[in-house]
Amino acid sequence: MNRDIENLDDITLLVKTFYDELCKNPVMDHLYNKVMKIDWEEHIPIMVHFWGSLVLRSGSYRGDIIGHHHHVIDKIPLTLSMFEQWEHCFIETLDSLFQGTNTEKTKKRVTAMTKSLVTKLNINS
C-alpha cells in the first residue's frame, strides 16, 4: 500500500517521475524536448513549487500558467489529445506512487486544471 503525498520531497518524486514517464510518449517527448527545448534542471523546481502550492498549499509558486502555455502555442498547435495524454500520464503517475486524501484531491485538481486550460486556451481538437 502506497502512502499519501505529505511534503515537498513527495512532490519532487511525483514531478520527476511524471516527466520521465511523459517523455516516453513520442508526441510529448517531441513537444517538450524538441519544440519547447525544456531545460529540465530549471523546469523541475518550478513545477515542484507549482504542485507544492496546489497540493500542500505551500504558496511557493509565483507564475502565469496561461501565459506559459500561450508561449507554447506560438511554436506548435496544442491539441485536446495532448492535454488528455498529459492528464492520463499524471494520474497514472499519482496512482503508481501514492494513495490517500491528498492524492485524490490532486487527481481532481489535475482534471479541473486540464479542462480549464483547454477552455482558456481555446483548444478544440
Results as ranks from 00 to 15, higher is better:
P77Q: 08
I44L: 02
M47D: 06
L80S: 07
F90L: 15
A112E: 10
T17R: 09
T111V: 15
P45A: 03
T101Q: 14
K34R: 10
V118K: 04
F18E: 06
R62F: 13
Q99K: 12
K34C: 06
G67S: 04
E92T: 15
G100A: 13
D95C: 15
D4C: 15
D74R: 11
V55K: 07
K37C: 04
G63C: 08
T114S: 09
E6R: 15
T119N: 05
H68K: 11
E104A: 14
T79L: 02
Y19D: 01
G59A: 07
M82H: 00
S53T: 14
I65W: 04
M1T: 06
H49K: 15
T79F: 04
K75H: 07
G67Q: 06
W40T: 01
K37G: 01
V27P: 04
L31K: 00
S116T: 14
I5Q: 05
Q85E: 11
G67R: 03
K75T: 02
K105E: 12
K105T: 11
S58Q: 11
P26H: 06
I44Y: 05
F18D: 04
G100E: 11
K120Q: 13
R3D: 06
S96E: 13
V15M: 11
T119D: 03
V48I: 15
M28Y: 00
D4N: 15
I65R: 03
M28V: 00
K105N: 13
H69N: 02
N122I: 07
S81E: 09
H49V: 10
N33P: 01
Q85V: 09
M1C: 04
D95I: 13
N102Q: 14
F50G: 06
D10R: 09
L14T: 07
F90K: 14
W86S: 02
Y32E: 01
I5F: 07
W51G: 02
D9H: 05
T93W: 01
E87K: 14
L97I: 14
M47I: 05
D29Q: 13
P77M: 02
T17M: 12
F83K: 02
V55Y: 07
E84D: 15
D95E: 15
H71N: 10
L31G: 05
L54G: 10
E104H: 12
Q85M: 10
M47V: 09
Y32A: 03
N33Q: 14
H30K: 10
I38T: 14
K115L: 13
I66E: 08
N122S: 08
V55L: 09
I73H: 02
G59F: 10
T93P: 11
H70P: 03
L97M: 14
G67Y: 00
H70C: 05
T114L: 08
H71A: 09
A112L: 08
L80D: 06
A112I: 04
R57A: 13
L13I: 14
D39L: 01
